[in-house]
Nucleic acid binder design. Sequence first.
DNA 1: ATAAAGAATTATGAATTCATAATCCAGTCA
DNA 2: TGACTGGATTATGAATTCATAATTCTTTAT
Lengths: 219, 219
Amino acid sequence: MNLSKPIARPSLHEELVDRVRELIIEGELEPGTKIPEKELCENFGVSRTPMREALKVLANEGLAVLEPNRGAWVSTVTMDELEETFPVLAALERLGGELACIHGTETEIAFVRERHDDMVRHYKMRDRQPYFKANQDIHDGILRAAGNPVLSQHHRVLASRAKRARFLANISDARWSQAVAEHEEIIAALEARDGQRLGQTLADHLLNKFTALKERVDG
Amino acid sequence: MNLSKPIARPSLHEELVDRVRELIIEGELEPGTKIPEKELCENFGVSRTPMREALKVLANEGLAVLEPNRGAWVSTVTMDELEETFPVLAALERLGGELACIHGTETEIAFVRERHDDMVRHYKMRDRQPYFKANQDIHDGILRAAGNPVLSQHHRVLASRAKRARFLANISDARWSQAVAEHEEIIAALEARDGQRLGQTLADHLLNKFTALKERVDG
DNA sequence: ATAAAGAATTATGAATTCATAATCCAGTCA
DNA sequence: TGACTGGATTATGAATTCATAATTCTTTAT
């Protein structure tokens, strides 16, 4: 009997880490606000112990900040922090692109192509929400195709920090069309399995996104 | 009165995260062995609550593995994992090199130069321990000069995982001299503030190190 | 009315307790 | 002998309790 794995019953704190992380990333817990420990415990029906364990983990990921004797706060997303985060994200995406061209299976690449086509359709319809979803699926898909869990994990942590900046969704028409054009090059490079070009394009894509963002905020 | 910060008394779990992390990185808690929770609590004179919080954080960093109802174990360092880790580390070092050439102060660069000269001296004396220390100071120094805390943090987590592979210190004479030669190019590129070259050299340096390691293990 | 001081309340950090799962060990039977 | 069973022991996950720090609310004095 080789029942691959025992029944996976994740411990409470693991479940809570995922749930509360989601609350923070999705903005239901707003940056800079206090994390209502007691309230969350009641909502989730758990005691303080596992919830506090989860908060320590989230603090370690940079999503929460713990102030001694004053509790946990949702960390703020400052421009300075984004200025630090984007180059690192870009470096990871570049590597992801290079590896995806080497290790990606045809199925994985086909999936990215599908989502790319979906994304273009949403762009033409100017459906922002589905567009952003497809966009994220593409980037996640490339990372998955890279087949490097360590890379994916670090990318996930950084992306979650960036994603919380709500104004990232505030995209200009010009930038939007440029982004779609960049995505055409991304999918072309991926299907050609041109790792250098894909990596370069992905990194540029992210940094362009950030530049456009800064212009919108500063100007 | 602007007393920059209140007296920083880190909470127990933060202190424990650092202490236990050090035990794991330094190999006092060996990969694959059980983490003796009770014993550690007694040694540090704390109750299980903050210790368990610390273990959750370390598990999130990948240094420990939590098995439901069976406790915490020091994670193993497999060749497969290193195969995943090194490319990511290389990507981060490349970025660090590029940024150090842009943002590094003269003082920061001078510090790296000092440690480089120290390292070469230790190499000539074949003093392994001080050599490795100087080597690490150089890489940390470049990262610091890059002036990007997000980058440093992710680099630190990955480097700690790699550092635990004790056999990394098992270096051949040929590889050792090659590594020193690579370091000459690293310091030259840094002082010339040639970011592209420094980034490339740092990435190659790390990947060469890993290749040499694999040859020693496989062959 | 406002500010300061001090008491009451609440929230936090950490220790302790408790229920349960895992492990160990002796005893039984093939 | 060696594998299985069932109870004793131990370790783990989570809830609860407790001491203390922070905050809020009153009271008092100016």
